[in-house]
Design a protein around this nucleic acid. Sequence first.
DNA 1: CGCCAGGTTGAAGCGCTTCAACGTCTGTGG
DNA 2: CCACAGACGTTGAAGCGCTTCAACCTGGCG
Lengths: 200, 200
Amino acid sequence: MCISEKKIESLRQIIHHILPINDYDWNDITPHLSQITFKKNDLLLSPPNSCHFIAFILSGSCRSYFIDDELNENNLLLRSQFEFITDYESFITQDGSKLHIEALEDGEAILLEQKALNKLYESSFYWNKFGRIMSEQIFINSKRRNEELLFLTPTERYIKLTENNPDFFQKYALKHIASYLGISAPSLSHIRKQIFNHLN
Amino acid sequence: MCISEKKIESLRQIIHHILPINDYDWNDITPHLSQITFKKNDLLLSPPNSCHFIAFILSGSCRSYFIDDELNENNLLLRSQFEFITDYESFITQDGSKLHIEALEDGEAILLEQKALNKLYESSFYWNKFGRIMSEQIFINSKRRNEELLFLTPTERYIKLTENNPDFFQKYALKHIASYLGISAPSLSHIRKQIFNHLN
DNA sequence: CGCCAGGTTGAAGCGCTTCAACGTCTGTGG
DNA sequence: CCACAGACGTTGAAGCGCTTCAACCTGGCG
């Protein structure tokens, strides 16, 4: 599908920000980009399919979640405009994914294909280096999440989120934020009420 | 320091297993390897120093941990023979580390220097690709840890550890395993007792 | 021998969960 | 335009699981 110049330029800027890119390297990847539109509640990925894309969100928002034995949905990621979403583990290994990726609102995204990037990894110095830096950054995000889950209580995690990512409370429903924090929706309500009471 | 042939060969095998390596690429890195010995309770890294090495453990074992506001030590990693240990976030960014790396027993390790690897990233196709694959694998480990912390209860995490890593209980003290699981030492005792009682 | 670290135990406490009920808002169809 | 349904958030009560604290046991080591 043809992608508008303006939209693809925002992706190029993000990539350039990860690792400065010239026209030559850029032209290696553009044939392997495609644009999709999605409606609220659409599933961009569902188990046990393997994840063949990294999606760059142009508008709207998404979540990835895991369904446990008791059929609870547990959110792993919440992502919105100009951010990426994928199951990067499945993208790397091409093993079957255990995650769903679901649209939370209508929107658009540009997809980068796993096969194309993997092919570039064989020969392109730029894209190989890009993959390294991208993986490093994704790791750092994951490690920080680990540290929060290991070292902070649910209440502390909530407070930290209000400080570091106040935008989350504009973008996402509280029930999704609760799940992202690893707590139940009523618990989040109780925590919010308790903090509110302490302020007065 | 001179490193014995046999010891360095075990490192080459591990690297080869991550990404097959020839003599040419191997010779790029060997000048930047050094061997250290450490005693129990030695600190290989302490805040706020940045982490300049990836350590390949030849013998002995180590942990990385974070000290929180209440002065509790919280274990992030437990590692032993033929495994790597580092604060990979600090290694990547060269920002000050918040982690301690401590020897749990006497042992030896080979250190790979950050500056050397970073230099190779500029020019070497092999080492750049190696860095990408290593980062991908480190990410996958981190993501799986995330999922366990988010989706499983402490008791479930303990049971999973006994199933997937029974060797941990030979290698590490229970108090370190408890901290690694994100629970207190008495809690681990209670959980173990409860499981034992259920078996009878 | 005596000390100390590691592990266990029981009691009390607290924080999050679960469950069920209710209020509010939004969108939809009569 | 209003009635109603459904999704979302909140609330309170009860329960449970991990934490905390203190006491105790054991084995290893100076």
